[in-house]
Design a protein around this nucleic acid. Sequence first.
DNA 1: TTGTATGCGTTATCAG
DNA 2: CTGATAACGCATACAA
Lengths: 344, 344
Amino acid sequence: MNIGDTNKDRTPTLADVARFAGVSTATVSRCLNSPDRVIEETRNKVLKAVRELGYAPNFNARALAAKRTNTIGAIIPTMENAIFARGLQAFQEELGRNGTTLLVASSSYQTDLEEEQIRTLVSRGADGLLLIGYRRDPKVYEFLHRQGVPVVAAWVFDPDADVPTVGFDNFLAMKMLAEKVISLGHRRIATITAATQGNDRASERLRGILAAMTEAGIPENDLSIIETTYGIDEGGVALEKLMTQQIRPSVVMCGNDVLAVGAIAKAKELGLNVPADLSVTGFDDIEIAKISSPPLTTVHVPHRRMGKEAARALLNMVGTTGGRTKILLETTLQIRESLAQHTD
Amino acid sequence: MNIGDTNKDRTPTLADVARFAGVSTATVSRCLNSPDRVIEETRNKVLKAVRELGYAPNFNARALAAKRTNTIGAIIPTMENAIFARGLQAFQEELGRNGTTLLVASSSYQTDLEEEQIRTLVSRGADGLLLIGYRRDPKVYEFLHRQGVPVVAAWVFDPDADVPTVGFDNFLAMKMLAEKVISLGHRRIATITAATQGNDRASERLRGILAAMTEAGIPENDLSIIETTYGIDEGGVALEKLMTQQIRPSVVMCGNDVLAVGAIAKAKELGLNVPADLSVTGFDDIEIAKISSPPLTTVHVPHRRMGKEAARALLNMVGTTGGRTKILLETTLQIRESLAQHTD
DNA sequence: TTGTATGCGTTATCAG
DNA sequence: CTGATAACGCATACAA
């Protein structure tokens, strides 16, 4: 192989481009990263070479040298349903507008898996991380801190948390819904929730129901609680269990819309009329809530705004520009047919 | 700073571990990558150092040196709904079992965005790529070939394609459903589909309907076609448009379950009884198909098997082990209430 | 079995 | 404005 040959059987590198354009590798690099720091003539020469050779920069080499990836990682509990889809979409869009790429991983609601994913994303050089929920082993935050990786916790709000939170008050949101439920005359309340262990969104929501009951003078023990994994089928199974108990609830408050829709489907299957025989509520207000029959009464969460604000917060943290990093969003009750008055 | 100091204010590197354990960096590297190539005593020493220092390997550096990332990328059209969720989940699980990580990106059904994502994933060093559908600019495949990155196209099957396909016959699947529809007496057929331009799954499915009509002696022109983006609301809008036409269809065959569910919801809103006044069919058989009311007649796609087989094919291609890379899966009709007999 | 030395493709520092 | 050249953190061929 003669000197000056541009390697033909290997994917082209910066050096190949430099040789082809007759400049140094430094110049090529500059052309790509700060085009204004190079005179137009050479720039054109270089860009032509880039096109000619079909050069694509090696991300890993770049990350290694620059210690920056323009990449932000997000770990969400599940991709199986649409709960996080909308928020994540907005998150990604906002990152994209700022030239940052999103890396997603899902933890299947498993703490250990999440920790593994965190390590993976960090070792891949993520400039920052989006996590869902705040409560987790302090070691995790210590690790992230040591590695100098900024984090934002979303889907929750806690001004006292060690890391910025962008989200809403799960406790208050569910409490408001429970108050509405109670005001409609319901006393025999049941709930289908995700495992509350290690899931602050779920446990806060449960706390919300209990608080509303207490304030209304209903004994906390009257609440039937079923913990299950999120899923349409799981919601159905849970509902069946509830309806075979001694005291059948007049309303089932579900931890999210997916469970609620599953519960409604099963209720109908059991010959129950929703909401005449049984009211059902959800949480999230994702698309299926609207098309459910009957349409689902639920808590509307501003998913898109949350995603966008979380991205902004994170971009602020990885960059130098300061900005708000603790953001509380409002939820609203979305009253639809699945919840009705109760009279004994 | 004294010689021998392990750097305290920086994330530890291989060299730090080596120094701490009193061995060479090569040994540490071996300990982590091929533990059996190092004697137990030193291995323990090294692992202890790793733990002590909280060392986490730098992925980018590793990729750069090893020219391998144990990472496979997947670009799916959307994460907004569950169409690809189940398949991707299985894909990821199978990769995980083989120590390979999945990197997901979504293209929002946009060709240019997809090409960008492909470049991104390749430049990140993905060892292989999963793409949805086969038909795309040949330049894309040329690029991938030049870069030496193996590809598998899923959700389609074409034994003659330049790249391995793992999927099902979209044409035949939809044709079978259309035949069933026609056998029930329907003649005024309409379809709500994704844009067929650059989407082989959608265009094949459309072709399937047309073929069945032709074989049944129904003029192709009788088919009302509405192209829209996938989404529940979009399905509703399309349905409304169809029902305000001169000749109202007796059945609406939708390109996927999401559109179908949206169509059903809108139909009910318009005071139509499904299926008495109007039949609706879907495609995919995702969870909402079951809980829809009425339950949705649709084409069942073996999503999980497809994901798993796609992973296997890809693993075979990046590794040396040979194996099947072209896999045809069967779809089945899933008849539920939303499709009924039609009599004029 | 372990160590030495080199290279992977880029960026960044520092001269020129 | 451009060019050498030294990192960046790790894997591996080769030597010991």
